[in-house]
Write a protein that binds this DNA or RNA. Structure first.
Length: 602
RNA sequence: GGGGCUGUAGCUCAGCUGGAUAGAGCGACGGUUUCCUAAACCGUAGGUCGUGGGUUCGAGUCCCGCCAGCCCCGCCA
């Protein structure tokens, strides 16, 4: 529909100009005053588009909205080019102009979609081939030596989907895993390691530390209980940061093992990431502080080096600081984030040369990013024409409305959460098979359970507007009806069923006949796919894509329920098969962009 | 105390640049299967969009006040 609305837009502008030549001539800002304000129709019965500007113009032109609408419509009716696209416009309500796209025009779009693997979504146009604009998506970001838990779920899933959409649009995308690999926690880990498994640091072979989480817990306990252990730990941090070989060896060991564990989760979720942890920016931290100082932004306060924020005041009415160097001389996460922003926007080879940098983290970090972005901007590290955005999301809550915890009150491990989703999908499927008297092979059952379980977790998260907290419920996400992954997957399975039962979906054909409203509803919805993708790219809200796909499934199910495909008369049968094909293609691509795998049977 | 986010049907949530009678899903109630997977479809009931002002031809949407909940607030990330 995007191409149609773009074609119509200038025609309306022309009509406005001809309808009100005196105003057009006198008005300096013709463009803003005569914005056609073309919008998708708010309801199906209003057609495909609506022009809302007659109401807005009433005051400026000192005429009634209806009279203005009539004048616009008269002009449109005289324009042959416009009438090639739309039926005669209708005026409704206080002065809305409703446009309905001609059936033959919709059909042309429909045929074009059938042949277009991109389903109408344009490639972005910036840069030459091989030098497309770079979009950095910073997401997931677990901490080394800790396990991925439910807190990493949303960032990982939402970030991946956003990255997929940019990739599909033809951007060069860098999916960065900004892992926590340089915190003070390494002091205690290394100290503990030296005591319990010194041999790990002496051999050159890979040493298996076993359960890293348990190891972390033991270290933490000792750190909390034993003051001499604390002293040693602090010394280890200093050693590590000054490049001590043994400390580095230990650090590498921890990182590698963690990496291995993270990768298992990413493989399961089919998510790819490039690891570039905090340690990567170490060499740049000193320079960040130096340059902030040189540009006059840096202020020493109680021994800490800070940049005071503009327009953000604290309790005492004084501006809030962003601390970039602690009293003890150490750097902190604001320093790292500043170094990262700077590196990411600096052009190659000294940096990434990004045009857009997106941070997918929980909304609790909103203040932090606001401060960091402001400092980076004032330091001149965010080039004009680029964008840096925090994409915040809410907490994952349990069904009691409180932060999700296990029954014993512990953080939910991501691994366990995924296992449970798959296990539940598995048992649901087995129950169903029994009820229906179906026999299926184990591999089939495993695959369906896995796809449905993981898809359900992802979809449940993505289908919610990310800014609000999100109530996690296995029962709801795995439900067979409603706005869930299984519902969407099932629509696709129905189409595969038609193909299996003898419907040739691949046949090319440019003479379709449609007569039923269920068919036209489906066609109209299918043609909106391109608009939705571009909207998600702009707003970074994958839930819009989910809503679209859910509606598509609903409309398809209505069509499927009310009209026969295989048993229809030949002329309708082939047309309906084409419609099924485009529906399947759209669902598949949409789900792929959400990172959700699909099934032929379930 | 300051800042951010949120408040829409019994529950979980949509609601795009302000537009026509505020939408889904679940749950409730009623119906549909000689037919491509009924994991579906159709129908009924359910609303003072937290609250009070303001801007506007028009406000769930924008602005201000208030109430409630969650999160953050100088040397953790």
């Amino acid at each position: 529909m995007r191409s149609l609305s773009r074609a119509i837009q200038p025609l309306i502008r022309e009509a406005l100009q001809r309808a009100f030549p005196e105003a057009a001539g006198n008005t300096r800002d013709f463009k803003s005053l005569f914005d056609p304000s073309l919008a998708p129709a708010s309801k199906p019965e209003f057609g495909d588009f609506q022009i809302n500007c007659a109401l807005t113009l009433a005051k400026a032109l000192k005429r009634s909205p209806k009279a203005i609408a009539v004048a616009i419509v008269d002009q449109l009716n005289m324009n042959a080019e416009f009438l090639k696209i739309c039926d005669q416009p209708e005026i409704a309500g206080p002065g809305f102009i409703n446009l309905t796209v001609r059936a033959d025009c919709l059909m042309d779009e429909f045929y074009a979609r059938l042949e277009d693997p991109r389903l109408g979504v344009p490639l972005q146009k910036g840069g030459d081939i091989g030098h497309e604009p770079l979009v950095i998506v910073d997401f997931s970001s677990p901490n080394i030596a800790k396990e991925m838990h439910v807190g990493h779920l949303r960032s990982t899933i939402i970030g991946d989907s956003i990255a997929r959409i940019f990739e599909f649009r033809g951007y060069h995308v860098l999916r960065l895993n900004h892992v926590g690999d340089w915190g003070t926690q390494f002091g205690m880990l290394i100290t503990h390691l030296k005591e319990v498994a010194p041999q790990a640091l002496e051999t050159s072979a890979v040493f298996d530390l076993g359960d890293l989480v348990a190891f972390y817990r033991e270290s933490k306990k000792r750190f909390d209980d034993d003051t001499s252990f604390q002293v040693k730990s602090r010394q280890e941090v200093v050693k590590l940061q000054s490049g001590d070989q043994i400390a580095l060896k230990a650090w590498t060991l921890f990182c590698e093992q963690s990496r291995h564990e993270f990768q298992k989760i990413y493989d399961r979720l089919d998510i790819s990431l490039t690891e570039r942890g905090e340690s990567f920016y170490n060499h740049y931290l000193g320079k960040v502080v130096e340059d902030l100082d040189a540009s006059g932004l840096l202020v020493s306060d109680d021994g800490a080096k800070c940049v005071f924020l503009e327009d953000v005041v604290g309790k005492d009415g004084k501006p809030l600081p962003v601390i970039v160097q602690k009293t003890d001389g150490g750097f902190n996460y604001a320093t790292t984030d500043l170094a990262a922003i700077r590196y990411r926007f600096t052009s190659s080879p000294k940096g990434d040369g990004a045009s857009r940098v997106i941070y997918v983290t929980d909304s609790g970090q909103a203040n932090h990013f606001m401060g960091v972005f402001q400092v980076a901007s004032r330091a001149g590290w965010i080039p004009s024409g680029t964008r840096v955005e925090h994409v915040p999301f809410g907490l994952v809550l349990g069904e009691d409305g409180k932060k999700l915890k296990t029954r014993s009150g512990e953080t939910v491990r991501l691994r366990d959460l995924l296992d449970e989703a798959v296990a539940r999908a598995h048992s649901d499927l087995c129950t169903r098979l029994k009820e229906e008297g179906r026999e299926e092979e184990d591999a089939f059952i495993q695959n369906v359970a896995n796809t449905v379980g993981l898809g359900a977790v992802k979809y449940a998260d993505l289908s919610q507007n990310r800014v609000t907290n999100y109530q996690f419920s296995f029962d709801k996400m795995l439900a067979l009806q409603g706005n869930t992954a299984p519902y969407l997957l099932y629509a696709l399975v129905r189409i595969s069923g038609i193909a299996r039962k003898g419907g040739d979906l691949s046949k090319s054909m440019d003479q379709c006949t449609f007569s039923e409203p269920q068919e036209w509803n489906l066609i109209r919805h299918l043609l909106k796919f391109d608009d939705v993708i571009l909207e998600v790219e702009e707003e970074l809200l994958p839930n819009r894509l989910c809503s679209y796909l859910f509606e598509l499934s609903q409309i398809f199910n209505r069509f499927y329920d009310q009209l026969p495909v295989l048993k229809a008369d030949q002329s309708f049968r082939d047309s309906r098969l084409r419609l099924c094909r485009l529906t399947a293609d759209t669902l598949k691509l949409g789900l792929k962009l959400l990172g959700i795998a699909t099934l032929e049977r379930m």
